[in-house]
Design a binder for these strands. Structure first.
Lengths: 155, 155
DNA sequence: TCCTAAATGAGAATGATTATCATTCTCATT
DNA sequence: AATGAGAATGATAATCATTCTCATTTAGGA
């Protein structure tokens, strides 16, 4: 089969090998961890979780792999204002829905919301089209987030 | 006058003193610098510019002041992916228009765009209302940005 | 199985941001 | 204009997420 991805290797196998990158044990473990959580993990948190299934991976490799996955468009990198980057797998066909974030600036709570996503995406498409024409930009991605105080912190 | 802001002190005087904070020379110099640029300065760049008009200010004070100004809602803090935070004054009544950003992931070029802002703001209002009701969030701010490749880098 | 470039791990290095603390300054009150 | 209390400061050290270095290992096509 294409790129020598044996079955059970994960849907991402082709996405990685297809671009000429090797699918190493570390990379598989990192993708495994990302695919099994709905949290917004930091590099170190990912490193800790990876350690449980493959203790051989180093923190530097986690950073390098995350950078690669962002480049390949498999992972989103976020800054929620707590001083460390956070990562989320952009799921494949079977995965979770496209969503945006609501961030509490006091306690750091993150809510994934899918409400209004259709409206948002529709507008975003229109804007992307307009901007890419006007500024000759090749737009790949967008970011929308709301910040404020959550139920507990607003009191 | 209220809060003892003498004329020529800058429109921000009341916004700072009104919240019980002192308007020190360092803070004034920082606001001065921010109000005279349309760039997206990092803390160190601000520090360098401040040095020219008031060499007494320290880098730590620049960081502390920026944090305060963000809290007061006078400044926006951005992460454009180059490893340092960037700051922009949210202008007063006479200031520049509300805008969002277009970021080149290769060369780091930032374009401020105001196209479609009416549409965006309209939708954002609707979403803010919906989300704050559903999740009991007190939404203060939003962030929209597009990432991609600029004219030069897309080739 | 072999070969080669890609990828790795361990730890050092980097660099932005934050904490510390003795001193200075702001400003409401006198 | 002088005062005093507490906020704010500057210099520097400390922190800590991220990146770099380099000798070694690995993936995967031949």
């Amino acid at each position: 089969m294409r790129h020598g991805c044996r079955k059970g290797a994960g849907w991402w196998c082709g996405r990685v090998k297809g671009q000429g990158y090797k699918l190493t044990i570390s990379r598989q473990a990192i993708l495994e961890v990302l695919s099994k959580t709905s949290k917004h993990l930091s590099a170190e948190e990912i490193y800790n979780d990876v350690y449980k299934i493959y203790p051989g991976a180093g923190l530097a490799t986690v950073y390098r792999t995350l950078e690669l996955l962002v480049e390949l468009g498999l992972v989103h990198k976020f800054d929620f204002g707590d001083g460390r980057a956070r990562y989320e797998l952009i799921e494949g066909p079977e995965g979770k829905k496209h969503h945006h974030h609501l961030i509490c600036t006091k306690c750091g709570k993150i809510i994934d919301y899918t409400d209004f996503i259709e409206d948002e995406v529709e507008l975003l498409k229109k804007i992307e089209k307009g901007l890419s024409e006007k500024y000759n930009f090749n737009i790949n991605d967008h970011l929308i987030q709301f910040t404020g105080l959550c139920e507990k912190c607003r009191r």
